[in-house]
Amino acid sequence: MNSFTYTGLPARVVFGVGTTAALPDEVGALGIKKALVLTTTHQKAEGEALAEILGNASAGVFSEAAMHTPVEVTERAMAAFKTAGADGIVSIGGGSTIGLGKAIALRNDAPQVVLPTSYAGSEMTPIIGQTEAGKKTTQRTLKVLPETVIYDVNFTLTLPPKMTVTSGMNAIAHAVEALYAQEANPVLSLMAEDGIAKMTSALARVQEAPADIDARSDALYGAWLCAVCLGSGGVALHHKLCHVLGGSFDLPHAETHTVILPHALAYNAPAIPRAMEALRRATESDKPAAALFQIAQSAGVPTSLEELGMPQDGIARAVDITLENPYFNPRALERDALVTLLENAWHGHEPAT
């Protein structure tokens, strides 16, 4: 076995069905006296329900969280935090809301309790992405890692089947890249393979029975494992492309991951033989990239950048931005090959190895 380094991240996890009941105790354990509850506009009702559970420990609800964590939204949230006399954060939602909580914590080091309602995985990472003037930038710092995560399977039962698939594919992407990222190691590889296997199996079952507790539990557990991979491991070409497409063209986060993942994996496949072995086991397919593409296709979710509103004439610009500040990748980034990758993704072609 080769030498490796594994860094475990300090986070408390409460997992199960009905675990939201533990929220007041978890907030109190962090010494939070007044928690500002964060949501998107669409999940304001869920945020208000949490504020009621918190009672006197609630500092109100801020419901303007948005995709890609726009800096201007964060500035409004900071003002609300100060005005309410808050000293902590409770975030309920997916990547948009969790990202906003992280952005606040980055600026004032406020403790965070997170209740995920999707499989995006941001809650388990010390990574924050923020968008300003049309560009999304990311950084890694423990200041933004939530202190406590409450996984309540009940919150995922009403996640629509199509949204379940795109959110699940977003999670799978974290684990796929952990298998061949620069920080890859045997511990994360075990988590990644199991996370991908749990999620791919659960996605098929959820399509048939969206309220199946066991399927939803497996999906959320798989998402947790995939998120740990993202938080403790690293990323490569897939995440770079998604950051570029999301930040520069305002494409929806989970759907962009869904479209790009099979193509980015196919691009790297020749350079990652051991990772491909693990992916064949996890997906139970000889062609993992095609298997991931077919999961999206069979669920009727977008499989092309064209469907997401990406202009075809933006492909060259996306490649330029990708090459300006590239992430580590096991295969060298070749301009013509990247253009072909994005052209295939734009048209929605099945990935070519």
Rank of each mutant, 00 (worst) to 15 (best):
V27C: 10
N56T: 06
I321H: 00
M199T: 14
R216P: 07
V228M: 12
N154D: 14
W346H: 14
M199G: 06
A65Q: 07
L190Q: 10
H257R: 00
I89W: 03
L220A: 11
G31S: 06
I98G: 01
H238C: 12
T164Q: 07
L36W: 03
Y327G: 03
L9D: 02
F4Y: 12
L188F: 03
V206H: 04
V165P: 09
E193P: 08
K102A: 01
K287Y: 01
E208K: 15
L245D: 10
Y221W: 09
R335T: 11
V187G: 04
M163F: 04
G314L: 01
M191T: 00
G231Y: 01
G231D: 01
N108L: 06
P210W: 03
D194T: 11
A178H: 06
I260G: 05
P270H: 13
F15S: 00
T166P: 09
E72W: 10
E72K: 03
G28T: 08
K143P: 10
N344L: 06
N329Y: 01
L23E: 11
G246R: 02
H347D: 09
A299Y: 04
V113Y: 11
E334D: 15
S304M: 07
K136H: 09
G348W: 08
A296R: 03
A223Q: 04
A211P: 00
E350C: 07
A86R: 09
V14A: 08
V228S: 05
N344Q: 15
G121F: 07
N268H: 04
S63V: 00
I150L: 14
G99W: 00
P252A: 08
A77V: 02
L38M: 02
E26M: 14
D286K: 08
L145A: 06
K198N: 10
A219M: 12
S232A: 13
A291Q: 05
G348K: 07
T303V: 15
N154S: 12
I32H: 06
K102F: 02
D336G: 06
D218M: 11
A254K: 07
S298N: 14
L30Y: 08
L251N: 07
D152M: 06
L323T: 09
M310P: 11
H243G: 11
F328K: 05
M163K: 14
V206A: 04
L188W: 01
Q43N: 07
A352V: 14
Q297K: 15
P160Y: 04
P24K: 05
T69I: 15
N329S: 12
E26G: 11
A65P: 07
A59C: 05
T20L: 13
A219T: 06
A49K: 15
R317W: 02
Q312T: 05
S167A: 15
S118M: 09
Y151W: 10
G247C: 09
L237Y: 01
A178C: 07
I128S: 04
N325M: 11
F293C: 04
E334I: 14
